[in-house]
Nucleic acid binder design. Structure first.
Lengths: 212, 212
DNA sequence: GTAGCAAGCAAGTACCTACTTGCTTGCAGC
DNA sequence: GCTGCAAGCAAGTAGGTACTTGCTTGCTAC
């Protein structure tokens, strides 16, 4: 019943699960990590499956994926900030997401829950870019859906795989958001209102370091 | 000793591992899947770990990731064909790659082996785009590294996650390669020699179906 | 002080896991 | 026909797994 112990168990379960997956997250390991007797797990959550399900819910409830504002101001600045926040969110949950998705066939509901955050983030981006195009800032002839899909995949890949295959991510993690956004805007055919996009030197990234 | 039985075991191990991961791939399951006595596994490979290591080697040796040709002809056509082949390769190994990467911390050598194919494919693309730029076909002011990184991530994401989160991949799997390549070339600032890139209708994808 | 209750502790159950051993079967080469 | 050898089969070992039970400890409320 004690909420303090309950949360300690949930946090420990999240750590152990993120490292070892469902099968590897034994009740003994979780209890040790939480500094709690193993029996307490079963008295509090009933079973290992229920415990990990509760852990999953608490994880998705704890932090929310970032949402882009409704009205478009400076696209590059707004997108870069959103992109940095989303990357931070994804990196914080990288191991958990990786494990959950790789076990999607055995536990599809858990995978569904883990994808909720990224999905809403992607939908938010789609809405924003639609506005961009409505306001004549993006090339209307361009395949925007594909650009969005590739953008989201790039953020996913960066957050989930940068540590495993660093060769594929040459730019440092800090400057990645602005570079991703610039490339994305170029692909979307941003019609610069103030600045020309295609012939701008890459120096811009440095002047906007204060986004975190 | 018999190579036929050996291969049957290796294939069965690949299937079971791709579905259940290292911990879930029990020797009993593999033996049943191979239609072989469990003892034969140990007599042939020594231990479960050695069996799965041999399976990994045989998997990476079986098929190779596609390589782009050294001289640049029609970039869009060549890249689309390469992209289709790489996607096919990745999709064929999707479950295996997903499981292996998610277990990278516990078995880093296996993850390294699984990343070998994708890494060489990425390096091949980097070389090709460098040639593109040398021949003046790509915008020299553009951040090509980032575009390549996002492109590879997009292919990875498509191959590994399309089945789990289909919302993020609106375009059908068949037409994905040409769309990815067109978006990539736009981001790289392809300077069209014969055709203008930015204002071309998407019809091109249909006329090049014979890539397989 | 005492009743209630959450948590710890020790032990046990039933099952699964990797791996071993001893023996039998069936086939190929001499 | 005999030998050698690869594979099957039955059984067992030692340890791990989820989960249960019975009892003790310690704190809180009345």
């Amino acid at each position: 019943m004690s909420p303090e112990i309950r949360n300690r168990i949930l946090d420990a379960a999240a750590r152990v699960y993120a490292q070892y997956g469902f099968r590897g997250a034994t009740t003994r390991l979780i209890a040790m990590e939480a500094g709690v007797n193993e029996v307490t797990l079963f008295r509090t959550f009933g079973s290992k499956a229920q415990l990990l399900q509760a852990m999953m819910q608490s994880q998705v409830a704890a932090t929310a994926a970032p949402i882009l504002s409704d009205d478009v101001g400076d696209p590059e600045r707004e997108l870069t900030e959103w992109c940095g926040q989303l990357l931070e969110y994804l990196r914080g949950h990288a191991h958990l997401i990786r494990k959950t998705i790789s076990e999607a066939e055995e536990r599809p509901d858990a995978a569904c829950a883990a994808c909720e955050g990224p999905n809403t983030a992607g939908a938010s981006l789609a809405l924003y870019v639609e506005r961009l195009r409505d306001e004549g800032l993006a090339d209307p002839d361009v395949d925007i859906q594909t650009a969005i899909s590739m953008f989201i995949s790039a953020l996913f890949g960066d957050a989930l795989y940068r540590d495993v295959m660093p060769n594929s991510f040459p730019q440092p993690a800090k400057s990645a958001p602005s570079k991703y956004v610039q490339t994305f805007l170029r692909a979307v055919g941003l019609r610069a209102s103030s600045l020309p996009v295609r012939s701008r030197p890459a120096r811009v990234a440095g002047t906007r370091r204060r986004s975190r």
